[in-house]
Design a protein around this nucleic acid. Structure first.
Lengths: 149, 149
DNA sequence: TTTAGATCAAGAACTATTCTAAAAAAGGTG
DNA sequence: CACCTTTTTTAGAATAGTTCTTGATCTAAA
C-alpha cells in the first residue's frame, strides 16, 4: 500500500482515481475556496496561480472526473454557471440574493430530506438537489431599510 | 375593468399582465402539454402550429414574462434546458433517468418542505427548488433485467 | 389621429460547456 | 532504461441554450 506522499495535501483514494497533479491542484483549490462554492472559471483562476500551465478545459475535466468519483459535488442553481463544493455531507444550498453567496444548509437532526415528499411507489431517488433562494439576513444587502439594533 | 374576453381559453388576470395573443398561445400550449414539462423549444414547436408567425425569441419572452408574473414555473434540472410547468402548487420534480420524463411530486399531507433543513436564524427562504433524479419504476427502461411480474 | 410605450420578429451575439486533435505524461513490460 | 499503450492535458474550435439588438408592429390613452 506504499503510496507516494510527496504532495502537501490529502491525497485521498477516491475510488481508485489516478491523482494527477492537475486533479490534485483542482481538488486543493476547491478545498481551500471551500464555502465560496466557486464556479469552474473561479477554480481556474486560482488553479492557474498555483500551476500556470493548467488550462480551463483541464479544470472542467478534473471537476467532472472528481464529481464522477464522488470526491466533490456539483451545485446547480437555476441555470447559472455550475458551482463546485467539497462538502460531501447531505446538504441543501441557500443562495442569498442580497450578497450573492451560497451557503450550505445541513439537515435537521435525524431528518430525511425525501420524507416530506409524496413519492409514488416504485420510485427510487438516487440523487436529490435542494436549492433555496432568499435573503440570509446577515449581509449588508439583506436589510437595507430596517436595520434593527 | 371591462376586459375583452374573446379568447377561447382561460384569460386569467396574472398580476395585471397584458395578455397578448402570443402570451395566450404560449400559456395555452403549456397548459395542454402540462405534465410533459416542455422546454422552450418544445413549446415553440407547438406554438408555431397554432400561430405560424410566432418566433422563438417571443416564446422565450413570454415564458419569462409569465414566470415573472407567477403564472407558470420555470424548472431547472442540472444544467439542461429549462422546462416550464403550469402547476402552481408547491411540488418537487422527479427526473427519471430511464424514460427522461419529469414528474411532479407533491408534498405529503401537511408537510413543509423547508422543515427538514436546519436554516440559520434570520434566513428567509423566498423560493425553493427540489429536484430528484432516479428511476420511476414504471417505464420500460427502469427495470431492464428484473421484470418482476 | 397622434403619440408613447410595450411587444414582437429575426437574427446576431453571448456564455458556459463540450468536443477535437495533437502533444505530453504515466504506467506497465521486458 | 527503452518501448509501447493508455490516459490525460492543452488549445482552440464547436455547440446549445439563451439573451440581446434593431427595427417593425401593436396597443392604449389623450
Amino acid at each position: 500500500m506504499a503510496q507516494e506522499s510527496t504532495v502537501s495535501k490529502a491525497t485521498e483514494d477516491f475510488g481508485g482515481l489516478r491523482m494527477t497533479k492537475q486533479r490534485q491542484v483542482v481538488y486543493d483549490v476547491l478545498s481551500d475556496l471551500g464555502p465560496q462554492h466557486p464556479t469552474a472559471s473561479e477554480v481556474f483562476v486560482t488553479a492557474k496561480e498555483r500551476m500556470p500551465s493548467i488550462s480551463l478545459a483541464t479544470v472542467y475535466n478534473c471537476l467532472e472526473t472528481l464529481t464522477g468519483a464522488g470526491a466533490i459535488k456539483q451545485v446547480n442553481i437555476d441555470r447559472e454557471a455550475s458551482r463546485y463544493c467539497p462538502n460531501l455531507q447531505p446538504h441543501a444550498h441557500f443562495y442569498c440574493t442580497g450578497c450573492n453567496n451560497v451557503f450550505d444548509i445541513g439537515l435537521e437532526n435525524g431528518a430525511d430530506a425525501a420524507s416530506v415528499w409524496s413519492l409514488p411507489a416504485g420510485c427510487r431517488v438516487e440523487e436529490m438537489h435542494v436549492a433555496m433562494r432568499g435573503v440570509c439576513g446577515r449581509c449588508p444587502n439583506c436589510s437595507p431599510e430596517a436595520t434593527e439594533s
